[in-house]
Write a protein that binds this DNA or RNA. Sequence first.
DNA 1: CGCGGGTTTGATGATGCTCAAGCCCGGTGG
DNA 2: CCACCGGGCTTGAGCATCATCAAACCCGCG
Lengths: 192, 192
Amino acid sequence: MNKELNQYITTCVPLTDEQLIFLNGYFQKKIFKKKTFLLQQGEVCKFEAFILKGLVKTYFIDHNGFEVILTFACENWWVSDIISFHEQKPSKMYIELIEDSELLILTPIAKAAILNEIPSLERMFRLMVQRHLASYQDRLFGNIALSAEERYELFLHKYPNLPQRIPQHLIASYLGISAEFLSRIRKRKSKK
Amino acid sequence: MNKELNQYITTCVPLTDEQLIFLNGYFQKKIFKKKTFLLQQGEVCKFEAFILKGLVKTYFIDHNGFEVILTFACENWWVSDIISFHEQKPSKMYIELIEDSELLILTPIAKAAILNEIPSLERMFRLMVQRHLASYQDRLFGNIALSAEERYELFLHKYPNLPQRIPQHLIASYLGISAEFLSRIRKRKSKK
DNA sequence: CGCGGGTTTGATGATGCTCAAGCCCGGTGG
DNA sequence: CCACCGGGCTTGAGCATCATCAAACCCGCG
């Protein structure tokens, strides 16, 4: 039984203790070193993972070979290539650890088994997908409507504890700007 | 019974004729004039709509009062504010018709009734959300990794029949550029 | 101690915006 | 039927934002 997972689940769906026990049995706790790839471009994503400890980035590679960060995920978030996972098609995505991490892994078979037994869990997974959707929607809007500096401020405000854990150049990539320009933004800020 | 809807559904989930008949009864066919708002900022979204005919835009308003187009949707697509609809929370979005349109409207109550009777339809709705997710993901990547001209080419390539139906300045907004700049891109293109 | 990855700084240049004006064209009223 | 209007598209000039490249710097780590 895992406390964090249970807490997360029960904020989405009310479940009995028996159901929680049943369900916990289908997750595999695994530990990974940083810089490990959980998924590489071309592979089919075979997991949804709940993060107990650590920090993960997901990204695409652009046509100059540079990373474009799609998401960061840390404690109490899910990480996966949702689309590749559900359609069992090759992914365009890389998922790589930024920190040593501890994950609860859910395979497609395990997920099917759980949902078969506890159909109301559909709700939790739907919420998970919706949260990702909302996040992409906000970021797309931000990237179009906001300046780089405003995007940075927003990022600091939304994720106050993350910036210390993430190298600058990755934050820059997430914001859609060059590492050099982020450095200048920070300099301007510190002068006030 | 509606042919287009049935066709769409059965490519997602195999259903019996009885199920299709049952299900069709829960959709309301409605006709709207262009420039009608299906949803405005602050309202709770009370529908998911399948488009039989016509063209719709969804957008946010930025802090200068300009539209930022999130999506276009036309025949055989769904339109809704997925998040507002499911959480029954006020939306940040506008949904407005670009053309006179014919829609099949599904209310939260009707959706619940259908899913209660035909649980396997969950799959179709999950696919709908996933397609939106994939689309936002691709656009976010494109907006970061690609130049305005590349984004425009990609748009023409992905939706070859849409550009004729959509005013330039809306396409510009969708691409995240000014109407003037799109005009220049088109001029450059035509010179080749 | 030296190495290497990350960050900073400067100089230069491209991309795309803003503002203002003109143009084209379909719709509307006289 | 024409004149006028208004919205969308184009064009030009000037400018802001942000990228690129190169060099220096910083600092933890082997």
